[in-house]
């Protein structure tokens, strides 16, 4: 029987899901990192309030992303996840610790600085772990007969450390953009200042990764620099430069939302850059999306419910952001 392949649909769902996760948890992890630089309890409270109502919803995308990968591309799940054994462990524990630090900070007055630190360190470590995973993923894993055949420390390379640091700056920029949007006065000034540092870091990292990646892989270099690809794909780097310039201006101007939008733009461009480099592989160098996909019956069975539930989840999430629009006030109870 000739059935319509659902792989493109699931690629889209998974790709969008991961991008949502990166943006959403990205900015609240970024806020968590910047939280550590806030000078006093009052400013920390405001910063915390800027993400309090939404952060846990953001994290749920991580679970959905992991489960969608398992159900739609089980082979990719079975290779990538064990290859990232320790970064995933560290990320999960940092996220758990950060989550409870969020709660206990208010309960446990004596240990406020302990939980304050737990919150900002937890955010930073989780981000670093995610960035390292990204780098290790781009570099690819050693695979033999459908299983990851390397060692659990293969993930640790100069390149993955670079992407780890890059993501710290990236989430930091998203977080700074969010704080510019949600706060005013002194905290906003600080956010702009940190935002400039992060943007600088992000741009250096993007440049280094963009040079390093094609040097690492002939396929990727051919993808970008062969004719006519170089012409077709040139808008990506050009747009990156433009968006970076605009973002820099918003950090120095009066714009409230510009930095956040600019940061989203930079993430979208970087994300598409990675997608262009790796397409159509889901396990770089080894398996394409089609090869790693689960059976048509599996994908169809899950798609039915997903198409029903996902729009509702999206609408509700959007609505909850709408409810909390506007600047955070210091007196909002939490």
């Amino acid at each position: 029987m000739n059935t319509l392949s659902l792989v493109p649909v699931w690629t889209l769902i998974l790709g969008a899901g991961i991008f949502f996760y990166v943006l959403l948890d990205g900015f609240d992890l970024g806020v968590g990192m910047l939280y550590g630089f806030m000078p006093n309890t009052k400013s920390r409270n405001i910063v915390m309030n800027a993400i309090a109502p939404i952060w846990d919803g953001n994290e749920t995308w991580l679970v959905l992303g992991g489960l969608a990968l398992l159900a739609a591309f089980p082979l990719a799940f079975a290779i990538i996840i064990p290859a990232l054994y320790f970064p995933i462990l560290v990320m999960l524990l940092a996220l758990v610790f950060r989550g409870v630090a969020f709660e206990f900070r208010f309960r446990d007055a004596e240990h406020k600085t302990f939980w304050d630190r737990g919150f900002s360190y937890g955010s930073t470590i989780a981000t670093l772990a995610q960035g390292i995973m990204l780098g290790a993923f781009i570099q690819g894993f050693k695979v033999e007969s459908r299983v990851f055949a390397g060692s659990v420390f293969d993930f640790l390379t100069p390149f993955s450390i670079l992407t780890g640091i890059a993501l710290v700056f990236g989430y930091g920029l998203l977080g700074a953009g969010w704080l510019v949007l949600k706060t005013e006065g002194e905290i906003q000034d600080r956010a702009r200042r940190y935002g400039r540092v992060c943007l600088g870091g992000v741009l250096i990292a993007i440049l280094l990764v963009s040079i390093w990646t094609p040097l690492m892989s002939d396929a990727i270099s051919k993808r970008w620099f062969s004719w006519p690809n170089i012409l077709v794909l040139s808008p990506v780097p050009v747009a990156t430069v433009l968006v970076a310039g605009i973002t820099w201006r918003t950090l120095n101007g009066a714009s409230q939302s510009g930095t956040f939008i600019g940061a989203i733009g930079l993430f979208a461009l970087s994300y598409s850059g990675i997608a262009i480099s790796l397409w159509p592989m889901i396990v770089p160098h080894h398996y394409t999306l089609d090869q790693a996909a689960s059976s048509p019956s599996t994908q169809a069975f899950l798609l039915v419910g997903t198409l029903f539930l996902l729009p509702i989840i999206l609408v509700y999430s959007g609505w909850s952001y709408w409810v909390f629009r506007g600047k955070v006030r210091p007196d909002v109870g939490y």
Binding site: L67, L70, A71, A78, I81, Y85, I88, L92, L302
Partner: peptide
């Protein structure tokens, strides 16, 4: 994530069946 980090052979073998149930 446990299913992937530690039980990846199971994930590969049974993912087509149990994956959607977990999801």
């Amino acid at each position: 994530f446990q299913i992937g980090t530690n039980w990846s052979r199971y994930a590969d073998a049974a993912g087509n069946v149990v994956g959607p149930l977990f999801a």
